[in-house]
Design a binder for these strands. Structure first.
Lengths: 231, 231
DNA sequence: CCAAAAGTGTTTCACTTACACCCATGA
DNA sequence: TCATGGGTGTAAGTGAAACACTTTTGG
């Protein structure tokens, strides 16, 4: 006990960069809350809050996200820890930022707790953000762009059943460039990690597309053959 | 002020996974200290210590590293933040771990401060480590293996002037597999990021090898052409 | 029948891989 | 002169990129 008691301690927060994909608008969205209190009151910020004792930062991020927006069961991974002096006017506050990917259509976020409002906003052109949250968002965007190419995490932005065109749109929006349709389909199908379903997308004013589902078991088998996901 | 004051605070530490490369032994080394005090007294651990107010975690890692081992001017990047409850018997202690790469031959580490001893040990077969430092080391090894292939950070493990064989040994040791000599040379030279010197390695009982130097300016030019480092 | 997106193969080129011998140097 | 690592080129195969038309469906 003694040793750690002798040292001054920072406040510890967990912030969450939550991305969602708007397929119709072909836009990447980020979930922001309007601060109801404290410094930057009224400004947009990333959802987040103080980590509780006996709680790991990731769990705190998930808890705060649910408290402020109602979003649950969200894929989260640690992004980076921001601890530059002066990043928070309240004093010494260190933030463990996490990256989250959710289906935009699955749950409607609602403002609760410290949030006056919640909204999906353009991740590439966000409003001015509180604290150093702009920098955190930039870091998250870079990480997402890097990671999506060699890890199958993009599926978390899509519904469980999706068309290949939707998957391609996902990559085009995040990588910010057009991809060739035939080559994209060839490559993703050749990995054998998608389950081809006997259903098609309905309610469309043109030919209906076949639906696919990401299959974690096939992905595991794929990896064990020494292969690596890459797009 | 008020808001953050109301919340319990963790102790914040910065730990450092310092890698060095032993070219003769073809071994990857990690710098460990023997703890002089506190929990796990007498056990091997990563260098590190408490972060001071007004100090960013990275800077704290550098400071602690110098205090405990004398190593200065070291390349550091943030690795991961470990905050699982129970990871430190003293209570709630969150650690921001950093990854460091140094030249094994450049500076001799010496035990000072909280360290009873300092030693370079086999990174792939370390002694039992204090706290969750074994897990931190594993995380660092994975990160290093992943990163070295698409970022030119390996050079920091070598002297400024090095032979292509030394560079190849570096990759073989970290990736843990043999590489083809001709293909390796072709690929690294084709990037045009090395400066070919008119000097050769001396004091060898065989043909002397040409020396090269990593050229940051050429690397920048290389990147701006849209190319990407990869090995 | 028209608009809109789905679906489909082939060629070319670049890059990766596999592979073996002679050369220079110091002891 | 011998032991040791330095240095070099080519051929075959694999994967990436470029590219356009027909099909299906609902309105």
């Amino acid at each position: 006990m003694a040793l750690s008691e002798r040292h001054p301690r920072p406040a510890l927060t967990a912030d969450c960069v939550v991305f969602g994909l708007d397929l119709e608008a072909e836009a990447l969205k980020v979930l922001l809350v309007r601060r109801a209190r404290g410094p930057f009151r009224g400004a947009w910020a990333l959802p987040g809050g103080f980590v509780a004792p006996g709680e790991c930062p990731q769990a705190a991020a998930a808890r705060e996200l649910e408290e402020e927006t109602g979003l649950r069961d969200v894929f989260l991974e640690q992004l980076y820890t921001f601890g530059e002096p002066g990043r928070d006017p309240r004093g010494w506050v260190v933030s463990v930022a996490s990256l989250a990917l959710v289906r935009l259509d699955a749950q409607q976020p609602v403002a609760c707790s410290d949030a006056r409002a919640v909204a999906w906003q353009d991740a590439y052109a966000p409003p001015p953000l509180a604290f150093d949250h702009g920098r955190i968002l930039d870091t998250a965007l870079k990480r997402l762009r890097g990671k999506i190419r060699y890890q199958p995490i993009g599926f978390r932005l899509l519904p469980p059943k999706f068309t290949l065109s939707q998957l391609q749109t996902l990559y085009e929006v995040i990588l910010r460039r057009r991809l060739d349709k035939r080559n994209f389909r060839k490559k993703i199908l050749s990995m054998g990690i998608l389950e081809e379903l006997d259903e098609t997308e309905r309610r469309v004013a043109h030919r209906a597309a076949r639906l696919y589902r990401f299959d974690p078991a096939r992905y595991e088998a794929f990896c064990e053959q020494g292969a690596a996901f890459s797009l």
